[in-house]
């Protein structure tokens, strides 16, 4: 896995494609230590070699360059990552959501997003004599 400066994100993929990495595998994101990182993998089918690249998304702008001009197959992945993590892919022409009905509300895959179903359903494992919460359930979720 190679860390890439966000400024060079799209250029790096252009360079890789020129080197023979013609096959786009996947692109997604994850949240770690309060920061969102975008990760993508491309392959060189001839040499049977792959490269895994990761970059930090700008915390304030929540934006990163789209690689869809280099790898058109990444459009679907970037659309999904955009709607699930609230990331703005600069240069991505298609911004339609895939699974969400609208972009209103918090992106579901951020750790700060609570799952309302888990908040509203009583946890069957709640002990009677002490306070315990299951994973992903917080008390002050309405304020969150």
């Amino acid at each position: 896995m190679r860390g890439i400066d966000p400024v060079n994100w799209a250029d790096e993929f252009s360079a890789l494609q020129a080197q023979g990495y013609s096959f786009f595998d996947f692109l997604t994101a994850y949240e770690r230590d309060g920061a969102i990182e975008v990760i993508a993998r491309v392959l060189d089918p001839g040499r049977k070699h792959s490269q895994l690249l990761v970059t930090k998304v700008d915390t304030d702008q929540k934006s990163v360059a789209s690689i869809s001009r280099v790898y058109p197959g990444s459009v679907w992945h970037e659309r999904e990552t955009a709607e699930m993590f609230g990331i703005n892919f600069i240069g991505l022409s298609d911004n339609r959501p895939l699974l969400r009905r609208s972009m209103i509300g918090r992106p579901p895959l951020l750790k700060s997003s609570v799952l309302a179903a888990r908040m509203l359903k009583p946890w069957p494992g709640q002990p009677s004599h002490r306070k315990q919460q299951p994973i992903g359930v917080v008390d002050d979720w309405l304020q969150a």
Partner: peptide, 15 residues
């Protein structure tokens, strides 16, 4: 002991 109830990812066991 409630271990099954608490570990169930679907919350489908009640005791």
């Amino acid at each position: 002991c409630m271990i099954c109830v608490r570990e169930c990812p679907s919350w489908c066991i009640e005791l």
